[in-house]
């Protein structure tokens, strides 16, 4: 859990992409206002609840590892991520309820609550921070936005929306640029710039497939700008939306199960 300074996010996209959250199901998105585009990206992985599996591959200068994950979410407040493999981390789980995070450590059979001082530290060695898991917000609410490009780029019809944080918004980015496919408004890339307008990280989306009854980009890759050779890549393998979850799914007892 080494600290990864400079990557503290407000990253709605990260959280939602990883966990899913409450919101309207993705609409047809006929109208193409900037707000529609942002809402569509925000809501892509959202449902009343969700359950699925993903593989997270982390590449750093010193090692590469892949974790198999299973996750459950309910609303925007609750989520549970359990590691299925490799053996060393098997059954390690992270529970998020509101702004609190707990980690269950099966090796020592203990659950620890994450102190706020560790929010900017890496989650399970990835390029996501614990804060990425906790924070949830909607881009359309926290940012002022406008369409800054619409047309062909690399032979594809794309729309680019540039977002600047509202003065009162508690976000750490200086600028967020969202690039979507013009045809279906599915995200291609989101770039995050820090308060000095330097590129901080780039998230790219690829491999659109049908999962959980929706067309979703099933591969998301985040690359930190200060270490372009490193990356964290999440591949969604299965996801189902709006399922009924047991009432105690997001309890500390369930975390330790």
């Amino acid at each position: 859990m080494s600290a990864r300074p400079g990557r503290a996010p407000s990253g709605a996209t990260v959280v939602l992409a990883l966990l899913g959250c409450l919101g309207a199901p993705a609409g047809a998105a006929a109208a193409r206002s900037a707000r529609d585009i942002l809402d569509h990206v925000d809501d892509l992985f959202r449902g009343r609840s969700s359950h699925g599996r993903a593989a997270m591959t982390v590449t750093t200068a010193h090692w590469t590892r892949t974790l198999a994950l299973e996750f459950w979410t309910e609303g925007k407040e609750k989520s549970l991520i359990r590691i299925l493999a490799p053996q060393k981390e098997k059954d390690t789980a992270t529970l998020k309820v509101g702004n609190d995070l707990w980690n269950f450590l099966p090796k020592v059979k203990r659950t620890i609550k994450l102190p706020s001082s560790m929010l900017s530290a890496s989650w399970m060695g990835s390029h996501f921070t614990n804060d990425d898991l906790v924070k949830d917000s909607r881009m359309a609410e926290d940012y002022d936005f406008e369409i800054t490009f619409e047309g062909e780029r690399d032979g594809r019809g794309v729309i680019e929306v540039t977002c600047h944080p509202k003065p009162e918004a508690a976000v750490e980015w200086g600028k967020v640029v969202v690039l979507v496919r013009a045809a279906d408004l599915l995200p291609l890339a989101v770039t995050y710039h820090d308060e000095d307008m330097r590129l901080a990280r780039t998230m790219t989306y690829a491999d659109v497939r049908r999962l959980g009854g929706r067309d979703l980009p099933t591969v998301m890759t985040v690359v930190p700008a200060d270490a372009p050779a490193e990356s964290t890549r999440v591949v969604w393998e299965a996801i189902e939306f709006d399922l009924a979850l047991a009432g105690d799914t997001f309890s500390l007892r369930a975390l330790e199960r």
């Binding site: 859990m1 010193h62 981390e89 450590l105 890496s122 399970m124």
Partner: peptide
């Protein structure tokens, strides 16, 4: 105690 080990593991 929880740390990120040198090989990336927990």
């Amino acid at each position: 105690v929880v740390v990120q080990a040198a090989d990336g593991s927990l």
